[in-house]
């Protein structure tokens, strides 16, 4: 029974681990860039130096990793961390997307040149990963009744 439960949770655990590592790596790069180290490489990866952005990524990453840890220890409730991590990652992805749209609209109004890559950041493009997870497990996210 125990092994059946663990194999059922294996894909979720692997996913949480992957998402967690990606977000923590993103947080690390953003923090490093914020400290002024390796700016060029960071810019290549579309990582701005933003301490608060790094903090947010680190929090989301920690949630995923904690979920992976609980799932690995056979605790079924670890999925809560996976789902809530996905939800938070998407919320922040949405915040950055809205910001991107808003600055495009602003540029259109003022006639300034608009650089879409300038608004790119790990919090936005990394959200593709949780988005895929959210779609894969979308039957667990019931919007109206908050069901998860």
């Amino acid at each position: 029974m125990m092994t059946a439960m663990m194999s059922r949770n294996r894909p979720k655990m692997a996913f949480a681990l992957l998402a967690g590592k990606l977000y923590v790596a993103g947080a690390f790069l953003e923090a490093v860039a914020a400290a002024g180290i390796a700016r060029g490489a960071a810019r290549l990866l579309l990582v701005p130096g933003d301490p608060m952005g790094a903090f947010v990524l680190a929090v989301i990453g920690a949630i995923f990793l904690y979920g992976a840890y609980e799932l690995r220890s056979g605790l079924d409730e670890g999925v809560a961390y996976l789902y809530v991590g996905i939800a938070l990652a998407l919320i922040f992805g949405m915040i950055y997307l809205l910001a991107l749209g808003a600055s495009a609209a602003d540029a259109a109004l003022t006639g300034d040149v608009y650089d879409p890559l300038g608004g790119m950041r790990p919090g936005l493009y990394l959200a593709v990963v949780p988005l895929a997870g959210g779609l894969a497990w979308r039957d667990r996210f019931d919007i109206k009744g908050i069901r998860l």
């Binding site: 903090f55 947010v56 680190a58 929090v59 989301i60 920690a62 949630i63 904690y66 409730e77 999925v79 809560a80 961390y81 789902y83 809530v84 991590g85 938070l88 922040f92 019931d142 009744g145 908050i146 069901r147 998860l148």
Partner: peptide, 21 residues
């Protein structure tokens, strides 16, 4: 779902960082 969300958002270590974020 409420219980699950709570487990995460009120986690002993992650609760305050999530609030700040």
């Amino acid at each position: 779902a409420s219980d699950m969300i709570d487990r995460v958002l009120m986690n002993r270590y992650l609760g305050i960082p999530i609030f700040l974020a």
